[in-house]
Design a protein around this nucleic acid. Structure first.
Length: 647
RNA sequence: GCCGGCUUGGCGCAGCGGUAGCGCAACGCUCUUGUAAAGCGUAGGUCGUCGGUUCGAUCCCGACAGCCGGCUCCA
């Protein structure tokens, strides 16, 4: 990042006719912003123009250098694999990609060769030269590039869809060596001045991607790369990726013996081992207690149901693809439930309800099963069987806004209790162009959406629209949480539903004696217990806070003579509810410390002759710091307090 | 579901057309004195599954399953 504020110049009469680069006259300039629009440094300015430096390390600067790198990638691919057709090549977070239609998919070896060819191209200092073309000229020049032709046809329709087209005019960028054009691509620009100006890049991987993101379209081969304003910035990014890999919950799940996915059970189905079970149980106990404190009633429902229930709820007409296929018994088809709401509705309906009971809140850890496509299964964050900490609040339409607010406040507080503190909200709404995917009237959708939007805004959190992302029965707010290394995860959802109360003919008797239909608010606080454990594992990199740690204390004797002393201490801790082990194996002390450290145990209690003489014990913490000679009573109090405080 | 890659003892990895090794872990023995790996020994694998090619397959080919990276989708 540039330390100094960007240079800004207002062009005077002497500057008119010069290039943006000339009037700025400063280094560390990727492109220029002239009167608010990004342009090439070769752009000729006029008197009165305001020209601003865009440094390489700025957001725009990075985007431009990444997009320029994408061009070099495309050029390298077309030189190495003649006849390969081009898709699009935008910048993305941390890098860029380019989509291709090659005669065969790229291999890892191909990527090495392509990266080398890219280096050749950058060394040649090819100039990116902008040329305005008419639609007819572009079409004939790019006649062999069918995807580019399609983009030309889209010009103006969706400017955000690709960097190739959009804006007032159609442009082609030529790569020049001397005066000779060695390569060209349809592109809106802008670009760095030359290929040599790309400071640092690296190809990451290749993968398939559907043309224009639609499963119905042809599948292209996408190559991902990363590019940065300096070699150091690139190195730092690669280091961050390594760190992220170390906290991968799938890896930590094995190393810390938390859970596994036995092939024999099936893809996307998890078993929790004793240590993972501790985390799961602590979470559930705490969450259950918090729900009770917030006025929820804990209920219980089965995992499967006859199909009629899911017709009533609307799941079978709208969600059948997402459910496991039915099993037939005694002439009925039974389905594993994919959602808990239909069952809760039956509890509501089990007797007449009064307005005095509302809002009526049901909560359970409901096990649901969803037929996720095989390619999307991913550790704990995308599974086929999981438990939702699911609740349904039945209330009058007038109560709904307060209930949504209540839920949002509750959810955010709960997430904070687990160490997640950085959030934004997403408002998922109906896609009006696909009426067959959503049930209910326009008016009801508008009402529901307005309630959610207003409540979301009142939290003061950033609110991002998600058009088309609603459930079939109503709009939703989802809470996105950022973890310790800045990645975001979709956690909680709050959904406003007026359709299922109608389908189930739910009602309550109002104060005036009339029968009214309640609305129901669905809310999953963690989304799924499984996903949340996965996210927490990555957030804490396996070093869970003491209250969640599978093993909270390990006693380590300096010599086996002191095993008994530590066993006595462990007994006292255990009676305080602390999960404690004494490592009385015949390893040496150093090895025991190493083992406890690798298991990320919060407290190591070390005892030798000095400690015993003083009636004390020595702490070693996970960060390697120590606190020696602590009297045993103090040590116990300290640990008990830390666990109680959930810090 | 689609495209590509991968699959060798509990974990991490070698290897190779002539039926397999290493480190850690496990087990045994001898050790154990202050903050991240003591030494020696033992045991453990029909090389994911099923077919095919071959005199012979862990190795080559195919199908299936699982996993990984993306796309699409999603709590």
């Amino acid at each position: 990042m540039s330390e100094n504020p960007p240079v800004t110049v207002r062009v005077d009469s002497a500057g008119a006719g010069k290039t943006a680069f000339e009037v700025l006259g400063v280094k560390d300039t990727a492109v220029a912003r002239v009167n608010g629009a990004l342009v090439d440094l070769a752009h000729v300015v006029a008197e009165g123009d305001v020209v601003e430096q865009v440094p390489y390390g700025s957001e725009d600067g990075r985007n431009v250098l990444r997009h320029s790198a994408a061009h070099v990638l495309a050029q390298a691919v077309q030189e190495l694999f003649p006849g390969t057709l081009l898709g699009i090549g935008p910048f993305i977070k941390d890098g860029f990609y380019y989509d291709f239609l090659p005669s065969r998919p790229f291999t890892p070896e191909d990527l090495v060769a392509i990266e080398k060819k890219m280096s050749d191209i950058t060394r040649q200092r090819q100039r990116f030269s902008r040329r305005v073309v008419s639609e007819a000229d572009a079409s004939s020049e790019l006649a062999h590039e069918k995807f580019k032709i399609e983009l030309i046809g889209l010009k103006g329709a969706a400017p955000e869809e690709s960097p190739e087209v959009g804006g007032a005019e159609l442009t082609i960028y030529d790569n020049l060596v001397g005066d000779a054009t060695v390569w060209s691509d349809l592109c809106r620009g802008p670009h760095l001045p030359t290929t040599r100006d790309i400071p640092a890049f690296k190809l990451m991987r290749s993968a398939a991607a559907y043309w224009r993101g639609d499963q119905k379209n042809e599948q292209l081969q996408r190559i991902y790369g990363t590019a940065w304003e300096s070699k150091d910035a690139l190195k730092e990014h690669l280091h961050l990726l390594e760190e992220a890999e170390k906290r991968d919950h799938r890896k930590l799940g094995v190393e810390l013996d938390l859970f596994s996915f036995p092939d024999e059970i099936g893809s996307g189905l998890v078993v929790f081992h004793p240590r993972g079970g501790v985390i799961k149980r602590e979470m559930e106990d705490y969450v259950r207690a918090r729900h009770l404190a917030e006025g929820f009633h804990y209920v219980g429902t089965p995992h499967i149901s006859k199909e009629g229930l899911f017709h009533t709820s609307g799941h079978l007409p709208y969600y059948a693809d997402g459910m496991f296929p039915p099993m037939e018994m005694e002439g009925s088809d039974y389905y594993l439930k994919a959602m808990n709401c239909p069952m809760h509705n039956l509890i509501y309906k089990s007797r007449g309800r009064s307005y005095r009971e509302l809002p009526l809140r049901y909560f359970e850890f409901g096990s649901v099963y969803r037929n996720e496509p095989s390619g999307v299964i991913h550790g704990l964050t995308r599974v086929r069987g999981f438990a939702q900490d699911d609740s349904h609040s039945y209330c009058t339409q007038e109560q709904a806004p307060d209930e949504v607010k209540h839920l949002l406040t509750f959810v955010l507080g709960l997430l904070k209790d687990f160490g997640l503190t950085d959030f934004y909200l997403e408002l998922s709404t109906r896609d009006d162009s696909k009426p067959d995917k959503f049930v209910g009237s326009d008016e009801d959708w508008a009402t529901a959406t307005a309630v959610l939007e207003k409540c979301a805004q009142e939290t003061g959190l950033e609110l991002v629209p998600d058009p088309g992302g609603a459930a079939f029965y109503g709009p939703k707010i989802s809470v996105q949480a950022r973890d310790a290394i800045g990645r975001t995860w979709q956690m909680s959802t709050v959904q406003y539903d007026f359709n299922q109360p109608a389908g189930f003919e739910l009602e309550y008797q109002a104060a005036d004696g009339s029968r009214q239909q309640p609305v129901m608010i669905h809310a999953a606080k963690f989304g799924s217990i499984e996903r949340f454990i996965g996210v927490l594992t990555e957030h804490y990199a396996g070093a869970f806070p003491a209250w969640l740690a599978p093993v909270q204390v390990v006693g380590i004797p300096v010599h086996s003579d002191y095993d008994g002393y530590l066993h006595d201490l462990a007994g006292r801790l255990r009676s305080e509810g602390i999960r404690v082990e004494v490592d009385d194996s015949d390893d040496r002390m150093q090895k025991k410390i190493r083992n406890a450290q690798k298991q990320k145990v919060p407290y190591m209690l070390i005892a030798g002759a000095e400690d015993i003489e003083a009636g004390a014990v020595s702490f070693r913490f996970r960060d390697g710091t120590q606190d020696n000679g602590i009297p045993v009573d103090d040590a116990i109090a300290r640990i008990v307090e830390a666990v109680r405080a959930r810090t």
